[in-house]
Design a protein around this nucleic acid. Structure first.
Lengths: 339, 339
DNA sequence: ACAAAAAATTTAAACGGTTAACCTTACCGC
DNA sequence: GCGGTAAGGTTAACCGTTTAAATTTTTTGT
């Protein structure tokens, strides 16, 4: 049925070891004549080495696991898809496979530790929403991992992220410079630290500008378009009094929902209401109007995360790298001075 | 270091076989007392069974491979993401892992057969762009596979698709009923059969309506937003004479690019130009104006594809299922009678 | 021509599980 | 007392590779 090393060995009249050495281009000396014979037999018999058996011996499957709670919720998929793109490009360059795990929800616990430790991947990339308890378990086994976009207080955990506080401060300062003083914050899930850190940046910017922080201008919710839509409707359709002049959305998905809602409410953007997002997913450029947002280099973040992981796999221990990627304010047409 | 069955066996004073039977809840009789002792030891020693070793014995890795040329090009990712969602949900329900392969381009050949046959996955889902030569190779090994959205003439290959000809005919007939007689077709990659089949439907509809087919109204290109944008600019910015009154785009990505171009050219949709897409990716509902399109049940297609694959894996042979999923015309605001 | 060194190849023990086949006991009916 | 059967457990081969160590063959130096 399946062609194995043994079959090849028999066909060539050599031992399996020799075939294996040829297969791996091992530094061991194999006579060129023998090598040729073996290679010919491989072609002849249409041999495909078994990665599972190899993995068992070498304890390397050349596979990176990607774990995310989001996927594949269409609301946020451009965010995740872009990161995954970066991951996969780097993975493939390094001849690694990519194994995808998801929980379909930001709420669901990522408790399926067994599968993370069953040897099928050499390391894990957590994209958002890592649970500390899981980290703890994986640490005990020194399972290589990198937490993307979810900072960990543990100094031994490798993480990659942007400076959310500074970036949020910067974008809110930009709004303030445009003359806004009543700015609402549409948060992401409060279980995610990114959302809290962006809130912190928002507060810092307000404080620096001498604008009092108002509880009522923080609209909690999730990082998705429907949530942005609903929150905007809810807070704006009633009274006009106390209405903000600008919306700072914790993610572009939220902002896109907000834009839809504003359109429906007949509130014009940016003349009557300014809107800013965060991430610069590809949909942000083609929204109406095009969205001013804080760009994260999502693709690079994915690539770099994969590199960090590979580094740890090679070192076979946790290295506790803390990588901070740059952000960039992308000015489009969704912000104007308040009327 | 790593806890193995042997360690457990030693700890409990039983043989590895017994431990294995307990682990697998085997029908073999194991004394409840022994079972308890073993289970306790598993917890105690924090044992995690090694999936790779298991895979080697059982020749089942409980892993589905997803192969796609697209991924993760942001232009088309909503299409692929949605299918992948369907796949993953079904995979996880059946306790299967999902392994992702990509080639990043519709042009690149999917020649890496070795990796498909190295035992790390039990079956393959090809999403778009299967190369016949690859199929041929995989057939020889009876590697279970399902081709999504890429019909194969081989009756033994399982495929899942929509009736592209009928669906294209339907949407073009709809345009004709609105009064359009000059309808351009913005194709997808001509290497993809879906694009050719949609062209066929377009021709049939024209013929049925007694409208002559014009070579010059078929604008070739790829299934992505930039391509839709560029083609629209190119064909419309020059002369107004001979201009179509409606654009039939082979995919929503193309249509979204066309909408952007029309906006830039100052051509109003739908009053001056009607636009229809195909697929109904989630972005289609929030384009400006919202896009009239032919919905494919992408999520269901993914789910069903996974089911077909699992069925074949169980049967351990090719079943040659040909599944056709329904389409549905979604009328939004991008079509109006020609002025 | 012969020992020593270098090259080519083989042997055999892993890697961490599964599972068919076999071995003990213990219990049952007659 | 004896054959039969079922429960509980063990032995050992096997899955398809890798790789250190041993062995054989060839080459080289003198």
């Amino acid at each position: 049925m399946r062609v194995t090393l043994r079959d090849l060995a028999k066909a060539c009249g050599v031992s399996v070891a020799t075939v294996s050495y040829v297969l791996n281009n091992s530094p061991r000396h194999v006579h060129p004549r023998t090598r040729e014979r073996v290679l010919a037999a491989m072609r002849e018999l249409d041999y495909h080495p078994n990665a599972v058996a190899r993995g068992l011996c070498s304890k390397r499957m050349n596979t990176l696991g990607v774990v995310t709670p989001y996927w594949p919720a269409p609301e946020v998929d451009l965010y995740f898809a872009t990161i995954l793109h970066g991951i996969m490009v780097t993975a493939q360059q390094n001849r690694q496979c990519t194994l995808l795990f998801t929980h379909g929800s930001l709420e669901a616990p990522m408790d399926e530790v067994p599968i993370y430790l069953d040897g099928r991947c050499d390391g894990l990339l957590f994209v958002g929403g890592v649970v500390d308890r899981v980290i703890e378990t994986l640490k005990r086994k020194q399972m290589p991992l990198v937490a993307v976009h979810e900072p960990s207080s543990d100094t031994e955990v490798s993480t990659i992220d942007v400076d959310n506080v500074a970036a949020a401060r910067e974008i809110v300062e930009y709004l303030v410079r445009q003359g806004h003083r009543r700015i609402a914050y549409l948060s992401g899930e409060t279980t995610l630290r990114s959302s809290l850190q962006r809130l912190e940046g928002y507060r810092q910017a307000l404080e620096a500008a001498g604008i009092p922080y108002e509880e009522g201008l923080v609209w909690p919710g999730g990082y998705n378009t429907p949530s942005g839509y609903l929150r905007t409707i809810e807070h704006l359709h009633k009274n006009r009094r106390g209405r903000p002049t600008a919306l700072f959305c914790a993610g572009d998905g939220i902002a896109i929902g907000a834009l839809e809602a504003l359109h429906e409410l007949g509130i014009r953007v940016p003349t009557e209401m300014s809107v800013v997002g965060f991430d610069d997913i590809s949909a942000a450029a083609s929204s109406h109007p095009p969205l001013t947002t804080m760009r994260q280099p999502l693709r690079d973040i994915g690539s770099r995360a994969a590199e960090l992981l590979l580094e740890q796999i090679k070192a076979s221990r946790w290295l506790g790298r803390k990588e901070v990627m740059p952000t960039e304010l992308i000015v489009r047409d969704s912000v104007a001075p308040p009327s």
